[in-house]
Structure formats: structure tokens, C-alpha cells
Nucleic acid binder design. Sequence first.
DNA 1: TTTCCCCTCCCCCAAAATGGTGAGGGTCCG
DNA 2: CGGACCCTCACCATTTTGGGGGAGGGGAAA
Lengths: 243, 243
Amino acid sequence: MLNAVTAKSSLEDILEELEQAEGLGALQTASERLRDHFDVDHIVYHWVDSAGDQYGCGTYSDEWRDHYLKQNYLRVDPVIIGCFQRFHPVDWKRLDWSSKQARAFQQEAIEYGVGNQGFSVPIRGPNGQFALFTISHNCDDDTWATFTETHRRDLILIAHYFNEKALEFEPGRIPENHQPLSPREIDAMTLLAMGYSRAQVAQTLSISEHTLRVYIESARFKLGAMNTTHAVARAMSRGLIVV
Amino acid sequence: MLNAVTAKSSLEDILEELEQAEGLGALQTASERLRDHFDVDHIVYHWVDSAGDQYGCGTYSDEWRDHYLKQNYLRVDPVIIGCFQRFHPVDWKRLDWSSKQARAFQQEAIEYGVGNQGFSVPIRGPNGQFALFTISHNCDDDTWATFTETHRRDLILIAHYFNEKALEFEPGRIPENHQPLSPREIDAMTLLAMGYSRAQVAQTLSISEHTLRVYIESARFKLGAMNTTHAVARAMSRGLIVV
DNA sequence: TTTCCCCTCCCCCAAAATGGTGAGGGTCCG
DNA sequence: CGGACCCTCACCATTTTGGGGGAGGGGAAA
């Protein structure tokens, strides 16, 4: 059964400890302690890198994690897809499970021990970083609704602390290739992302197309992109431009 | 003097009210109530659309706000610049005030009644949305340090709720006819976003380049895009592909 | 002051992407 | 069973990009 107790002191302790923690290992232990504190099946923190790399820690079984990675479920998982377009924390029931893929995925997840209920907090950092903090359990809808209502705020805060720590200790997360774009380069990338051709962009910016090309090429270089489309995609996923 | 009282009930009430609020006007009244609750000079929520649009509400004077907009201080304000590359909430003292522009800006801000102390929580939503929740006051460093230590968690949570409301009522956030892409179309868009040329994508997917073109054109049509770059950008911002 | 980056402009030519108009076979659903 | 959608393949001509050279002025920082 779900522990309806508030047990403030214990949660405070866990947060406090998390705040002081050194290294990513602390996130693993924290997720286990939180699972016990809330008396639920699983607590998981899942980091998704804009390059497609991912890092996760939590209480899912190793088998499920390996299977997930092997099948590249990142692009299938409705929790990822749904949360990526949201800001609000979301109950899994409210996500889109209509596709065949999604239902097969859900079936498999439950077989691997993931709860039938879930609540995920999307959370974002600089440069398009994206992560999920998820709490999952096996119970009926009403129990789960009460639980998430009660702990919504705590979960948001915990998600925040998890991500704070993950950002702090992620090794390749503040790489030197994080070169910012110049204003003109941002203009160019933005207009290209809006569907303008080079000629149109040049006209919009009131510069010659030759000049524009310099910006595009320089942006491409800074972003390590192979072509314009790639550069725009990278600029977007790093949060440098918004369309 | 700063109010060291926790006054939990009052803060709870404000959050509760914020959660139920309808319309952006509620954010304005909430910021005023919070200012009184914490007994500080200013509470401000500032939304920055990287297209350059901004929306703000809070307790700064109208003069300062108008001046800020008029001078286009977005690209000067060290709070914006600093928070944009951070995830952690940050004390203004820890920001980079070294440039000449920055010091002039600070001087002016204080003249317009902004406090000499400040604490800002950066917060991000989908599609690169970015906002700041700021609390500012006039006092000495020690008092301020104690205050921010004490209320750090509350402030993070409040920032989250402010942004939740702001996103909820943001104009121009209409879920259009989101036509889904077929699996092959998603493959194509994904690989294109990764920088592959058409020939490379075709080879990767083991199909002829002609076939690939059909997918790209069909995806372009579904997404209402004018060219490949536009299609990839739209697919990304709709969360249809993850790169 | 010197150095670095940003902004602006120019040429030539090859490579890649696009637009139009086709075709056939598959699955799934009303 | 017919319609809708998905997957697969093809040729034509045109437009758009990309890669390789350059060049000069301005501003900010070291």
C-alpha cells in the first residue's frame, strides 16, 4: 500500500543529503531511498542528451534498462515523447498510448516490472538539455490520483534537485564545442528554420546573399554541422534558436 | 527588515490560489501578494521568447519596465545572460558584472528602484521557452544570504507554478492539425536532422534515393513546410523527432 | 596597440536538392 | 470490395547549396 504519511523529516533529510552529494552515484542511492520513503515500486531519473545519448539511474531492473537501450525505445516511449512537448508534470494515463507501438511498449514495460501507474516530471536545462523524473507504481487509479495530488510539489522539487546534481556532475556536459552563435548567425539560423531560402533570408536581413553564406558557414562550423539542416537542428536542440 | 517568519499557511494559500488561477492577470496579483508575504522589495516573473518577444509581470515600477524594453536590455542584462546558461537558481552577486555595459546597467537599475540584492530562478519549457523568476531586495549581504538559503526551495516551486500558468495562457499556443508522420517519414526526418545528405539517408535506410524523396516530400506536406530544413525544424519543435 | 571576432561584400563552379509526373504492390478498415 | 494510406522505384529540367578562393572596416578585449 502507498504510504500516505507525510514524514516531512525523512524527505527533508533525503533532499538535504542530495544537496550535499558528490558524484552521480549519489543519485542512485537517493532514488532508492526515495522509493522506500514513498513506498512505491520505482523512482527513476532519465537524462536525454540532445545528441541522442542518455543516462539513467533509478530502481528499474537492469534487464529493463538494457532492453530499453537495445531496442532504442527512446523514440517509441510515449512518456518521453509526451513529456518532451509539455512543461507540466504528467500522469501516464494522460499520455497518448493509441499507437500500436506504444501499446506493445507498455505491455513489455509491465512485464519487466514497471508499474501500471506512473507520474513523470519533465525538466530542462541550458542548451536544450532534457530529463525526466519518474515515479511508478502498481495500484488502482484512485489510489494513484490521491498519491500524485498529495506529493506533486515534493516531486517537482525532487526532480529539480536530481537534475541539478546530474548537470553538476555530468562529465561531457559543458564541452568546449559549446560555442555561442553571433547575433547575425542566430538571425540566419532562425529564418532558415522558418523555411526561408538563402535568398529570402538575405533579403529579410537586408544583406547580400554572399554575406549570408558567411554566417551560415560560420554557424555550421561552430555547431559542428555537416549542412544547413543539421546546423538548424543543432541550434534548435541546443536552445539557441526557437521556432 | 526581512520577515524571517515561515508563515507556511500563507504561502500555501498563495500557491493554491495560483494553481486555480485563470488568466495572466492572476500572476500580477500573485507577485504582489508574494512580495508582501516575503516582505521584500520586488517579485518579478519575466518570460523571454527568443524570437525577441517578452512578457513580464511583477512589482518593478512601470518606468523601469518601459525603460528596459525601450533600451532593449535583454541582450545586456547580466541576469538574463547569466541565467540563460545555468540551471541553478543564482544570486545576482555570482553573475558576471565585469563588462562596462553591465555595470552601467546595474547602476541604472538601482536608480530605478531595483534592489541591490537579487535571486533569480531560471526555468524552461518546451520549444526553448525560457523564463526567469526573480526576487529582489535592498539589504546587506548576510541578511540576503540567510534569506535565500531559507527560502530557496519555496522560490523554485513558486517559479515553477508561475511558469506553468504563463505557459497555460500563452497566446499562440494552439495545437494545430498535428498530422502524425509515418515511421519511414520519421526515419527520414531524424537522419536528415542528424546531418545526413539524401544519398546517405537513402543508403542508411537501404532504399533508393527516389523513394526517400517521396518520404521527404510527404513529410514536408504534412508539416506544412517549405523545404527540408523547415520540415526538420517543425518536426523537432513538435516533438515528432528527437535528435 | 595588437589581436580577435563580427559584419559586410565579391567571383566561379561543382554538387546537391527540388518540382513535376509518373507507376505498382502492400495493409488495414469501414 | 473499394478507398486510403504506406512503401517502393524512375526520368526530366531547374533551382538551391556548398566549397574554394578573397578583402576591408569596426569594436571590444588583453
